[in-house]
Structures are given as structure tokens and as C-alpha cells.
Write a protein that binds this DNA or RNA. Structure first.
Lengths: 154, 154
DNA sequence: TGTATTAATGAAAATGATTTTCATTAACTT
DNA sequence: AAGTTAATGAAAATCATTTTCATTAATACA
């Protein structure tokens, strides 16, 4: 069985058993640029590994999230989407989301300016509302290139 | 039948028929400070109007959203929540969301600073990704006062 | 290198929010 | 006041996700 990612990520110590599904799902995630839904991962795997069930995909994604390997993003089309955490995107949750097809695009621009404002806001809000702030989200919603055309450019 | 809100909001022209469920649901929304889920609205109505079904609540919320009277916010607990659009909150979608109970708090602080950054970012992103930006969301996720205590303040 | 242990899997059923269907009711038109 | 048809409510359908449980297989250990 391929141990590609197991060695690569030093997972052995953190996960009970390193299995084929976990290996292949991590592989799909690292191959893909964008954010994939559970169903999309299941479909991508189906031709090469028809045995892997959707249940396992969900369970594995939840495991990876717990381990901090991936980030889960709620998409307005109802399916959650997941992306591998990399050095670049670590700590950033800034997205461009298409309301029509659910596609999610990361952006890095203005990250510094945003971060400054976010930190300032965070501190003030935590105090004012006695809230323990653990995370934040900044997202822009609209229509992606493809869907603008499909929708007759509105 | 009470026509309270029908007159108040000048709805008659915009909606086909003004009905009791629509009237009462709008009433609940305008009475409530926070963001209510469909189920919460249904429950709030149950004692005084046991006849009104959950289906109608959903349909009415969708109508109100189409008309621009309310704003729908996705909550991480899985249920969408809705708030009446008022003069103050119009154009702002800035929320403090509790990951444990789903409670949503609006905030206005830093709205001006945020808006400036948002506009700048929006323009640049729209151009770079050929995206038609229709809306944005800024949210802070964490634990509300009550849930911090329930969770032993972590 | 087998073999036992038990974590991980997959199929099917369960869940929970939301949507659809369809026969009935009632708001508005005339 | 009566007809038209939009709106309703109950039940069924959907859809993403979770749970259950019997089976499989990764690791430990003899």
C-alpha cells in the first residue's frame, strides 16, 4: 500500500492507522487547487477506487480537520468545501464565493490591511460582548466568470 | 384580520395577498432583537397560532428575503437565521456568531473603516478574478458569554 | 511470519434542515 | 355574494451529513 503522504506529513504518530482511503483522499486534496466538497472528492476517487464510500470521505475529512490539515468552508450551495492548509493560506480565511455554482476562490490581496483591522475589531468586540473569538471569516459573494456568462452577464 | 404591518410597510402593492401568517411572522421578526431561525419563529408562533405550519414559515421567509425585508445568515449550527432589515443594519452584514449555540450578534463598530477596506478590496478582486461581487460577509466566530460558561470557560 | 486485537471501513438507515407536492382554504376581484 | 386563484398545511421528498453495525484489514505481538 502506498505510504506516500504518511511519511511526507509525519502522520503515523497522530493517527491510529494509516489506510488507503486516507492516503488517497489526502492525495486528491493536495493535487487540487481549489476547494472540494465531500461529494466531489468521492467522485474524483470513484474511477480509481470505487470501493471508497462517501461515509469514509466525510469521516476522513473530519479527521483531517481535527488534525489541522484542512480547512472547512461553508458554501451557500449547501455543501461544505475543504482545502488543504498550506504555508501560504495558513491563518487566512478570505474567500470569493460564487452564489450560483458554489465555487470558492482564495485571495491573499489586502491580507495585511485586513489582518490589522481584524485584530483591532476582534479585541474590541470580544470585550464589549464578552465573546471568546476563535476565528473569523471575510467573504465576498457573487458570480464567478463562468456563471456570469451562463446567467447572460445579468 | 390584523393589517398592522401591511399598512405599516406598504406591502399591499408588492405581495399578491396579505395573509395572517405573513402578518404574524413579520410581527415576530420585528419584535425580536436577534436573528431567528425558521424553527424558532414557528415555535414562537405556536401558542398563539398553532395552525401555522413550518412550511409556511419557510415560504414566507423566502418571500420576505426576495422583497428585501429580511437578511438571511448562515449559522454554523446548520439552521439559517433571519433578521429584519432596518435603517441601522441596512448594508451591513457583520456578525459575531457563537459556534456552540448558533446565536448571532450584529455589530456596528468599525463599520466605516471596514466599509472603506471592503470597497477597495471588492474593486480589486472583481477585476482580478472577473467576479461580479454582489455582497460581502464579515464574521467573527467563537463562544458567546453563556456558552463560555457552559463550556467551563475552556 | 502468522495470528489476535481492534480501529477503520462501507452499506444502509437515521437525522435534520429545507423544499416540493397536492388537495384544501381563503384573500381579493367583480 | 360568488368565483378565481394565490396561499396554506400536511405529508412526502430531497439533500448533505451522521450514525449504526456487521465486516475488513492495519498494526502489534507471539
Amino acid at each position: 500500500m502506498p505510504r506516500r503522504h504518511c511519511a511526507r506529513h509525519g502522520l503515523r504518530e497522530q493517527v491510529g492507522r494509516w489506510t488507503e482511503p486516507r492516503d488517497v483522499i489526502l492525495d486528491v486534496l493536495s493535487r487540487s487547487k481549489g476547494h472540494l466538497s465531500a461529494k466531489e472528492i468521492y467522485d474524483a476517487l470513484y474511477s480509481s477506487h470505487p470501493g471508497i464510500g462517501l461515509t469514509t470521505v466525510y469521516r476522513t475529512l473530519e479527521l483531517f480537520r481535527r488534525l489541522g490539515f484542512i480547512q472547512k468552508v461553508a458554501s451557500p450551495d449547501g455543501q461544505a468545501r475543504y482545502e488543504l492548509r498550506t504555508e501560504e493560506n495558513k491563518g487566512h480565511h478570505h474567500h470569493l464565493i460564487c452564489l450560483r455554482c458554489g465555487k470558492i476562490i482564495d485571495y491573499q490581496d489586502f491580507a495585511d490591511e485586513e489582518l490589522e483591522l481584524v485584530k483591532k475589531t476582534e479585541k474590541a468586540l470580544a470585550q464589549k460582548h464578552n465573546f471568546l473569538i476563535l476565528d473569523h471569516n471575510i467573504e465576498f459573494l457573487g458570480l464567478c466568470d463562468k456563471c456570469r456568462q451562463a446567467a447572460g452577464d445579468i
